[in-house]
Computed example of a mutant assay.
Amino acid sequence: MINDDRANSSWVARHLLDLNETCRKIILSSEANNLSHLGGVLRLDLDIGVWEERLKGRPETKQLGDARRELAFAIFAASTGLYRLAYAGLRVFLELSFAAVYFSANELHRRQWIGDRKDFSWTSALDMESGVLSKSFVREFTPEAVDDAAQYARVAAQCYRHCSQFVHGKDVTTGLLPQSLAYSSEIVTDWAVSGRHAAESVLYLLYCRYSAEIFDLEDTEVCNTLEHSFSHLRSIRSLLGLPVEGV
């Protein structure tokens, strides 16, 4: 029996190590062919991390940290050929990020959610009348962001739906996935575009909710996170003291 167990253990180890080697080769292909796409998502994650650092001590920051961890796993999955997991992780990243901001203005709901007495509703969080990127919500925290918030709500909703198609096994999307653990430049690019849109919508959401509390022109790190992704928006350029003519 001991010998059989050892033989089985050896077989399992070889199988897992073979998969690991396949993933290593996929990483090299991803790095060689999709570096700018994946790097763009990584940079946005770091930008979100700057805001997370400024928000330390707030109750909802735990959910934001969990969201970034899911994004990190999703980036790794996208780089190693675990594509369905990559889309699933990106969806969780969106859910937890928007939940963090929703809970920041709904402490009772946050406590009920943590206590497993109430669920978080993605649909409610994206509601155009009362959601966290609705005019009524944004106006109370960053009025100058009201005009642009709706477009980022639409982007987040579209990204969430796209990821959900992979999660639920919709043939229109999962039919594009490799049938085995293998590299696909097209899928990595598609995921990275979704990842960039998701991360930008989250970063804009953080700006809408917290800029009045943490923004400081002397804080170059925070300023850079906004300039990286939103320098095309008049409200952001005005905030950063950049020229707005012709924008």
Rank of each mutant, 00 (worst) to 15 (best):
T80N: 05
F137R: 11
R161H: 08
G40F: 12
A77L: 02
K118V: 09
W122G: 02
D127F: 09
S134K: 02
L35K: 09
H37M: 08
L28M: 10
W113P: 00
G131P: 07
I114R: 10
D119R: 14
F73L: 03
V41S: 05
L28W: 02
Y102A: 15
R58W: 12
L64S: 11
L28I: 11
A74G: 07
A145P: 05
N33L: 15
V146N: 04
R139N: 09
Y160C: 00
A74S: 15
R54G: 07
R117T: 12
A125C: 14
G89C: 04
L46M: 11
D127Y: 04
G65H: 14
A99W: 08
S97P: 12
P143F: 08
R111G: 00
F76V: 03
R54I: 11
A88F: 14
A99I: 01
D66Y: 04
R68Y: 01
L44R: 12
R68L: 14
L82P: 04
E95L: 02
R154E: 03
E52I: 13
Q158D: 02
S121Q: 06
G131I: 03
V92N: 13
L35E: 12
F103T: 06
A156M: 07
E107G: 06
A32I: 00
G81V: 12
A72R: 10
L126N: 03
K118F: 13
E144N: 08
E144H: 10
L38Y: 06
L44I: 10
R54P: 05
F120Q: 02
A125Q: 07
A105V: 12
C163M: 06
G131F: 09
E70K: 02
F141V: 03
R58C: 04
F137M: 15
F73R: 02
S36A: 14
G115V: 00
F141P: 01
S79Y: 08
V92F: 10
I75F: 05
Q112P: 01
A78T: 07
D148P: 01
R117A: 10
Q151C: 11
R117F: 14
L28V: 13
L71P: 07
V132P: 04
F141T: 09
L94N: 03
R43K: 15
K62L: 15
E140Q: 15
R111A: 07
D148W: 04
Q63Y: 15
V50E: 15
S36G: 01
L46Y: 13
K118N: 10
A150G: 04
L64E: 06
R117N: 14
V101K: 04
A88Y: 06
V146Q: 02
Q63V: 01
A67E: 03
F76P: 00
S134P: 04
E53I: 10
S130Y: 06
Q151F: 08
A67M: 11
S30R: 07
I75W: 08
A145F: 11
E53V: 10
L82K: 11
A74P: 09
K56M: 15
S104P: 06
Y102Q: 11
H37G: 05
H37Q: 13
W122D: 04
R69A: 14
L55D: 03
Y152N: 03
L44H: 14
E129P: 08
Q158K: 01
